[in-house]
Amino acid sequence: MTAAPVAAPAAEVFRPADVAEAVRFLADHPGAVPIAGGTDVMIDRRLGRLSTGWLVDISHLDTGGIVRDGDDLTIGATTTIRSIETSRELADTAPALVEAARVLGSVQIRNMATLGGNLCHATPSAEMPPPLLVFGSSAALAGPSGERSIDLADLATGPGTTSLAPGEMLVSVTAAVPDGIGSCYIRQTIRWAMDLAGAGVAASVETDGDTVTALRVGLGAVSPIPMLVPGLDDIAVGHVLDPDVLAEAAARARDACSPISDARGTADYRRHVVAVLTARAIRIAAARARGTWPIDRLAPPNGFDPEVLPGRENGPVR
């Protein structure tokens, strides 16, 4: 009765000293797989979805941590979700990332899980892609033939698949976070904690006075890969965010996504939820951009915050 099962069928673990050694090893050992926090890898192995001769432990590698340089915010791939959740820098400049990190798993999971693992596992409902997409992020990759940078939107290619070449790994992600940008990430779940999103919505808003100068909305869990909603500039830029503009943006998000029906809701329900969450996320991001959102107040996980944002826009959107 006391015997806890071993992780999985036999495999070996290699612990490289730095990114260069990790990449060399991955290139020399086809089929070798990076393991960072292991919160996806260990489960995939246990469920028989992943069998490999080599696990390359990258969790201890220095990938630079969280650094802001002008408008560029760079986060190393091995940064834990807990470090993102508790970062002062991110709370000030990119609260959407904190709001996404805070709802991922439990404290224990967040202490282990990394940003790189969340992005490279390419789970459609993953928490971190939507907020990074609304900051127009790029991904720095290292591989046997050197380094390259891609648009983060091109990293995931389908559920569980990425554009990483054999032997290539993600080193860091750089988000564009201009002064004054407001952002927010909220999601719909069946339970408040330890649940995956039925729909996740991130928004970023830049304003000049009351006029919108940029608006982006990123969606998770409602399409095969996380996505940006197209065509929002046309309806929002140069306008004030009145209920009509909000409703139109919400409708575009609803029409752009392609959710499936599963245990987390029917496709119709999830489309409806996307519209509701889009309007809420935009309002919160805009309030942050205008400085009318209380500093250090995180949005409730589903964005319903009538104390700060009263009015019918918080409810269902037409």
Binding site: A4, A7, V13, R15, I35, G38, T39, M42, I43, L55, D57, S59, H60, S106, Q108, I109, M112
Partner: peptide, 9 residues
């Protein structure tokens, strides 16, 4: 959670 923590790491 030690069930997902690879000891080697």
């Amino acid at each position: 959670v030690s069930c997902l923590q690879l000891a080697a790491q």
